[in-house]
Design a binder for these strands. Structure first.
Length: 559
RNA sequence: GUGCUUGUAGCUCAGUUGGAUAGAGUAUUUGGCUACGAACCAAAGGGUCGGGGGUUCGAAUCCCUCCAAGCACGCCA
């Protein structure tokens, strides 16, 4: 079933267009907008076409509006009246009966209500978190995870074929540092703290020592006699899978289940990096200097050129990343790649797209969402995050402290680009202030009413057996209106890649339900009215549940 | 210094891609439970939309310029 609201909107837009065309056949009608006015007194929809025509029609906007309205039929649009207001808006006041259809739509579509198709099943890969496996996940990962997973769900609901992906950096300098750190701890544990100096840039975290100790407990000191490289390789081969498993466990707890865990090492081992470098060389975008291979990043907007292959022969992260995106967009045939990066990587975007163009892939196929890093606050002061102190608050800590629901909802309350202070004291001590409870409470309240009625033998009626016309109080109509908006909200979120729309919408739905609840009773009303209201709140329940599912937040029936 | 991001009520943030009198939550004040869950509802006060110019019927939104904050400018990832 097509969405009533979207259909009505389109109808009015077309009608206004045709009416203007009729009134001014000699003038080309410009793109105009149709919107739902903020002020209820301005009707259900408003178009601004008259103001936009003022110049070319050489007359006052209100006069133009009048000529357009003459060519509009309120009856055809099931509108109660059409008015000209303000500087020249044409306002449409609809007969509220059209709203009752939304209850039929929800009944028919159930958990699919709200889903639309704006992508025709095009394939998108959403890559997010991709935390370095050598360290714990920080608040930036927590925010990126909440965003990426939710955005993926939104895109699915909007008709995309979505793949959620985690890119594991299991190669390169980071891993080498990991190996050197493990090696130093291994030797220190066996031969004393002074036996070897811990690398200056090494990982200070306790987990390094723990992994070294566990290795010793399991396999003893045999590695001491081996070459350093062999020792490091053995320690990494032991510890890295454990680190990755820990990442996976935490993310699963966080409600994130990836479709693909992509290992960077496969790009190196499979020759893909080498092949990509050849391709770049052939397109004359590279040169050699100081024994390294450079790419002319300045040609696509960067301030400096970048190194692709170091003087020691090892390709940089950048080189691997280009190969990775060829893999996504060429080998695996995704129509679009969305990456979620922390603000500290934003400088990487322009050169990444430039490099993609250089290997023959349109930069348009890559969309990078930059999330501003989260600033932790404690006692009103900034608690700086540091990868080196080992004392930072991790994603796992956050989940333990405030729960998955609050964390995921909270992070999705703000658009990715906004700077965000995360008040730990507030999150820990006053979780009641988090709006997630407000929304969940609405859901639980509805379930409670339905449960009570069900115990006395009353079940949610079918739309066909409900007299919806009894729903005519302001609170009832407004609740219907907000329920009807879900498909439009999903469209907006999917197009702007911004799920924060949906948390705001959800709060709006909950708010309208709570207002309804305080203004209208369901139980103990006259039977037909009770049935109609029961149908209404059950529809609200479905809408809340559907959006909470997208957000990855639970919808409790009791709290 | 250069680039990216941000600046809206005391605080945390929305603002339908340029629309009508800038909105919520929180905090403060005041009402509402013998009634389906008061983790709720209703109402009031609270604003130089960082400052200043410009574009047009119309600007929180677009352009320019200052101011302030965060981030990035590695043969790190």
């Amino acid at each position: 079933m097509a969405n009533t609201l979207l259909m009505t909107k389109t109808q009015i837009y077309d009608a206004a267009y045709n009416a203007a065309k009729k009134a001014y056949p000699e003038i080309e009608i410009p793109e105009f907008t149709i919107e739902t006015p903020k002020d209820k007194g301005h009707g259900d929809y408003a178009v601004n076409i008259a103001m936009l025509l003022a110049r070319s029609a050489k007359s006052a906007p209100r006069a133009i509006a009048e000529k357009i309205v003459e060519n509009l039929s309120a009856e055809d649009l099931s509108a109660e009246k059409i008015e000209i207001a303000g500087p020249g808006f044409i306002n449409f006041y609809l007969n509220k009966r059209y709203l009752y259809n939304v209850l039929a739509e929800i009944e028919e579509e159930q958990e699919k209500y709200g889903n639309i198709d704006i992508a025709n099943g095009k394939k998108v890969v959403v890559e997010f978190v991709s935390a370095n496996p050598t360290g714990p996940m920080h608040m930036g990962n927590a925010r990126g995870g909440a965003l990426g997973d939710t955005l993926s769900n939104v895109l699915s609901a909007a008709g995309w074929d979505v793949t959620k992906e985690f890119y594991i950096n299991d190669a390169g300098a980071q891993i080498d540092k990991f190996g050197r750190s493990l090696d130093a701890r291994y030797i220190q544990l066996l031969k004393g703290e002074d036996a070897v100096e811990f690398p200056e840039d090494g990982y200070q975290g306790d987990d390094i020592r723990v992994h070294a100790q566990n290795y010793i407990d399991k396999y003893g000191d045999a590695l001491l006699e081996k070459e350093e490289q062999e020792r490091k390789d053995a320690l990494v081969a032991y510890a890295l899978p454990l680190k990755i498993a820990a990442l996976q466990e935490t993310l699963t707890k966080y409600g994130i289940n990836y479709d693909v865990w992509f290992y960077e090492s496969t790009l190196h081992n499979g020759g893909s990096v080498k092949e990509t470098l050849e391709k770049l060389k052939n397109s004359n975008i590279t040169y050699e200097k100081d024994g390294a291979l450079w790419i002319k990043s300045t040609e696509f907007g960067s301030e400096k050129d970048d190194v692709l292959v170091r003087a020691n022969g090892i390709p940089t992260y950048f080189a691997a990343d280009i190969a990775y995106h060829r893999n996504k967009l060429e080998e695996r045939g995704f129509d679009l790649a969305i990456n979620i990066w922390g603000a500290d990587h934003h400088g990487h975007i322009a050169r990444m797209k430039g490099a993609m163009e250089a290997v023959g892939i349109s930069g348009e196929k890559l969309d990078v969402l930059v999330i501003q890093l989260v600033r932790l606050m404690r006692n009103g002061e900034i608690a700086r995050m540091s990868k080196r102190t080992g004392k930072m608050i991790t994603l796992a800590d956050l989940i333990d402290e405030i729960g998955v629901d609050a964390a995921r909802f909270f992070f999705n309350m703000r658009a990715a680009g906004s700077h965000m202070d995360f008040d730990l004291d507030l999150a820990v001590s006053q979780t009641n202030e988090n709006p997630v409870f407000y929304v969940q409470y609405a859901h639980a309240r509805i379930c409670s009413i339905i449960r009570l009625l069900s115990e006395s033998g009353v079940s949610v009626p079918k739309f066909d057996e409900t007299d919806c016309s009894l729903l005519k109080k302001d609170e009832e109509i407004e609740l219907l209106e907000v329920l009807a908006k879900l498909p439009e909200e999903i469209r907006a979120s999917a197009q702007s890649f911004d799920p924060s729309n949906l948390t705001h919408y959800l709060i709006d739905v909950a708010s309208h339900f709570h207002s309804f609840y305080n203004a209208c009773r369901v139980r103990d009303e006259e039977e037909n009215l009770m049935r109609a209201r029961l149908k209404l709140i059950d529809s609200a329940r479905i809408v809340i549940k559907n959006v909470l599912d997208i957000l990855g937040v639970s919808a409790p029936e009791k709290m």
